[in-house]
Write a protein that binds this DNA or RNA. Structure first.
Lengths: 341, 341
DNA sequence: TATATTTGTACAACCGATTGCACAAAATCG
DNA sequence: CGATTTTGTGCAATCGGTTGTACAAATATA
């Protein structure tokens, strides 16, 4: 009170009870009489008491802080995932601490350090594109702090993961293009060390083969699948002796870059070149024509990740069996791939 | 060590010194000999020691946590601001805790509570659209916790703020349209209780009047300036007896909605209707034609906000004079307003 | 009614670093 | 060379809740 901060000691003094009683009353301990609880609560609000998370965390060992590491929050996908995480986490009394790796491994590492220093109760993360070694994540696991990875995951056994079925998403997308009459479908793929791109590539390939179309090396272009990469990729594809009649990109940004190039060259979309992206970023609905894309069930993904984290926290002592959750993506068809039949 | 956690006590024991010496050695206290410091540091890394922020915070009173409250992280503007904040904050040894209000006052209030409970050393925030009473922010100020507001600020004296010159941004935008030959310029404006919209409206008005054009009530449409609002606003404007020949929207989303309607009706942009937005979201560059927009200097804004926060922290004891910082916005001209001369 | 159980609260150690104060040893000064 | 200042480290209290244990009173059980 003196310096504006009320503690449980102040409440205890006023009520002639001990701090431990106050603490228990506030946390709704069964052994405390409801009479005492009421008195404590009233005095607490009267004195404008606020629970000091820090002090509680020091003794109890848990901060009720959940760390979230994302490549970039301004990707609609990631921010939606965060929304899902927040919904579940707050419900369960956890505060969420978001940080961004900016797809940089060093930053990712320092994010993890910061979180460990802040004693977060768990970490939910999606790995930076650039990251190829996972010692920093392994450290989290070794310290027995619940870790849940989503979307961009790594091949480590003791981690729970939530991903969409990238294979299926790609397969659906390519099948759709074939259904629209496309026969020469190119693919803009990302870093092969990230599973998402690996699986999407497989889905692409299998869809082609299952429909009796050949898989051609020159039709698959690897990059970081950013806007510029999409532009470059499209240029490259247009320079081929036999041009593709469709492009399936592993990211909406790459697809967008491709679209820009096509427009600059006055090629008709989807008649001369159909396009499909991946992520279903909101701008896909704004551009002209709308960009067909694979939706990644972002909020669900976040909710699942948070729920798994909670389970893992609850199973504290006992061994927790890491869960792998796979969600089914949805193909959102827009003008960029809808050919008049 | 026993349970994987090394403390300064473990280090002290190994080195036959006291924990206080270790603490001081680690924090580079001038009174500790460099010999001891070296020994402590080596032992620390050997034992894999990690500083426990929680314990330190409890005693020292500062958590080195900076809370940031944003309406939505997936707005490119806000995420850029965060980037700026992070740059400065991390440099100074602060971790950043981001939360979203989703433009909802209740959520905003609970965000603040959560942060106060977590004992953040300061809060940087942009107010939720919906918020009209500021008691929760006032509480932060009353508790003497540094508060810096940016972009969406409120009329309270004891707060530092960072904003762009919204008036000037609007003025530039409208003058540009007039320069392109537009004579009947409509305006999509937002909630008048938010300064940003109020000032933009004034800039719009003054630019018209300074160029000898009339300010017409029916040309100003108030809404939440989201995509749908832009659509509705455009419909309304097109229904006027005398249509406008340009629309200046206080948000890119509203401008985008307007653009969609224009395209659906096959009206030419910018010939029949020029468009200018506000925010310079990335999609403005993707759409066809590119959307002219006012850039808000987002990263700078974040950096300034963080710097002011730091100053305020440093000035701990003494009275800190709140600073109002105003940045100059930049008009990014794209196809939606560039008429062939 | 005597005994066993439950209920309600108090006591005190504890989480792990920080920090004002004390004090001896070393360095500097007159 | 004695007095003063500086340097390096230790002591112990402290931040504010949490929690295992103890114990008296109330209640239930036999």
């Amino acid at each position: 009170m003196a310096n504006g901060k009320t503690t449980i000691y102040d409440i205890a003094k006023r009520l002639q009870v001990t701090p431990s009683t106050v603490s228990r009353a506030l946390s709704n301990h069964p052994r405390i009489s409801s009479k005492t609880k009421k008195a404590v609560q009233e005095m607490a609000s009267q004195l404008n008491y606020r629970h000091n998370n820090i002090a509680a965390a020091l003794r109890s060992g848990h901060t009720h802080l959940l760390g979230v590491i994302l490549p970039k929050v301004n990707r609609h996908f990631f921010s939606s995932v965060v929304k899902g995480i927040e919904q579940v986490a707050r419900e369960a009394g956890y505060n969420v601490m978001i940080t961004q790796s900016y797809d940089d491994t060093a930053t990712e590492r320092s994010n993890i350090s910061a979180m460990l220093q802040s004693q977060v109760d768990g970490i939910i993360a999606s790995i930076a594109t650039e990251t190829t070694e996972f010692a920093h994540f392994q450290r989290v696991i070794n310290e027995n702090i619940p870790l849940v990875l989503f979307d961009r995951v790594m091949e480590i056994s003791d981690v729970s993961t939530v991903v969409i079925d990238d294979y299926q998403g790609a397969y659906k997308a390519v099948s759709h293009l074939i259904g629209q009459g496309c026969r020469r479908i190119a693919h803009l793929t990302g870093e092969p060390h990230l599973n998402i791109y690996k699986y999407r590539l497989r889905g692409y390939r299998d869809a082609l083969e299952d429909h009796g179309l050949p898989y051609l090396e020159e039709m698959v272009i690897k990059s970081q699948v950013q806007l510029e990469d999409g532009r470059a990729g499209m240029e490259q594809l247009l320079a081929l002796a036999e041009r593709p009649d469709a492009v399936f990109a592993s990211s909406d940004y790459a697809a967008m870059g491709a679209m820009q190039v096509l427009k600059e060259r006055n090629l008709k979309i989807p008649e001369e070149m159909a396009l499909v992206g991946f992520m279903n970023e909101p701008f896909t609905a704004f551009v002209e024509p709308g960009l067909t894309s694979v939706d990644q069930m972002s909020e669900e993904m976040g909710r699942f990740a948070a729920e798994i984290f909670l389970e893992q926290v609850q199973a504290k002592g006992k061994a927790f069996v890491p869960r792998k959750t796979v969600l089914t993506p949805e193909l959102i068809i827009r003008g960029s791939s809808r050919k008049a039949q």
